[in-house]
Structures are given as C-alpha cells and as structure tokens.
Amino acid sequence: MAGLFLANLSVEALAQDPWMAFIHLLQTQEPLSAVLEVAEEIVRGGHSSPSDEWLVAASEQSPHWHQYCVLFLSLRKEQTAASRRLVSTAPKGGELFERIRERLLVSEH
C-alpha cells in the first residue's frame, strides 16, 4: 500500500519527493523484498530513481542503507561509474540481495 500511495500522490501532496517520503518510512532494518516492492511501485508510478549523489549520501548512513541504495539502483536502465561502485562495495547480504547484486555486476560488462 505504501508503494501505491507514494507512486500516485503528487510531489505537492507529499510536500517532498516520493523517495524522501519513502526513506522516512523505513525503520532500522526492513525486509529487502518489501523495500524493493515499494521502490518498484514508485518507479512504475513515473518517478525517476534517485540521483547518484543522493544514493551515495544515503548509502553512507549504514550498511542497511547501502543495501537499500543497491536495490534502488537495480531499477535503473543504465548504471554509472558511481552506481557500479555502490554495488561493488555494498556489504554482503542475503540471497535476494546477492542475486540482485550479481545481476548488476554482470550487466556492467
């Protein structure tokens, strides 16, 4: 439900970017599958993924945030040097995370 709301409410109604609204909803550690589902819905709603600068700053907050940022990157069509660095330096995660990371690392070649 959170993804549907964030994807379909205007920036004016949210009074902020949907990605900022989303990160304010996250707790210390959320299931990565839930984070990915909401992020996918935001992108399906027509919002572009966060900038490299935003992702780098967010990833520096904690190991969990670093993994969240990799999930957000997985929704992009193209990767940049900064995004590839975020993926390759992310802390090891569970099965879902590692499958996503591997796909991103393989796609850059």
Rank of each mutant, 00 (worst) to 15 (best):
G93S: 07
G93R: 03
A34V: 09
R101M: 01
H64D: 13
S88H: 08
N8H: 15
S10F: 06
E60F: 01
E53V: 08
H64T: 11
G45I: 09
L96T: 07
P50D: 09
G3S: 03
V87I: 15
I23M: 15
H66K: 11
R76Y: 00
L55W: 01
A82D: 12
E37W: 00
R85M: 10
A34L: 09
I100N: 02
A15K: 13
A13P: 02
H66V: 13
W65C: 12
L32I: 15
A34Q: 10
V38M: 05
V87N: 04
S59N: 00
F5H: 14
A21T: 13
T28Q: 05
G45D: 03
L55E: 02
E12G: 12
G93Q: 03
V70G: 01
W54F: 07
E102M: 10
R101Q: 02
G94L: 06
R44M: 05
E37R: 04
L9R: 10
P63C: 00
L9P: 05
Q79D: 03
S51Q: 12
P91T: 05
L104D: 00
L55Y: 00
R44L: 13
H64P: 01
V106R: 02
S62K: 04
G3I: 14
V70S: 02
W19Y: 11
F97Q: 12
E40P: 04
S74N: 12
A39S: 13
R101V: 02
L32M: 11
E108V: 14
L75V: 11
A2I: 15
F97W: 11
G3E: 05
S48G: 03
S62W: 00
R44N: 05
A21P: 05
R101H: 03
D17S: 14
G45Q: 04
